[in-house]
Amino acid sequence: MMMAFISSLMMLFSGGESSGSLLDVNPGLIFWTVITFVLLLLILKKMAWKPILTSLNERENFIKESVERAETAKKEAEELLELNRQNLAKAEEEAQKVIAQGRDYAENLKSQIIEESKKEAKKLITDASLEIERKNVEAFNSLKGEVASIAVQAAEKILRSNLDKDRQEKIVNDFINDLSKN
């Protein structure tokens, strides 16, 4: 039963044997295939593949170069940034140093000025006290002379009016009064 089915199917498929089979080789078709394919290859090679592939390559190279250029530019920019940062740090340091130096200098100057003014003041004080001493001595000396001359004058007066005891007393008292008044 099964065999009958299969043989019928086989008959169905081999029924077209008269008009040719799948494995028939047709020389005309081979000829036309060669002609068509070779012509297609030549025409497309000249017309399409060459310009398209060239333009694809150009584009790819352009992209590659652009990326490379961008990469280089980025690297350069980074280097520049690093350099800038370093310069900035250096400048900062320099500024700090200058400020510190200025502060030191000012400090020194300040202490020096104070020192000097102290010295000056001391000297002035010494000078003044010396002057006072000297003036004192001078005044004392002149007072001494004055007192001596006054005493001489008083003695002279006493001697001149050497009459009585009352008188004498009066004169001395007057003198003493005078003296005390001065």
Binding site: S19, G20, L29
Partner: peptide, 13 residues
């Protein structure tokens, strides 16, 4: 008989 080859007809040159 000829109609049996209709599949082949579609496939063959």
């Amino acid at each position: 008989e000829s109609s049996a080859g209709w599949i082949m007809h579609h496939i063959l040159d």
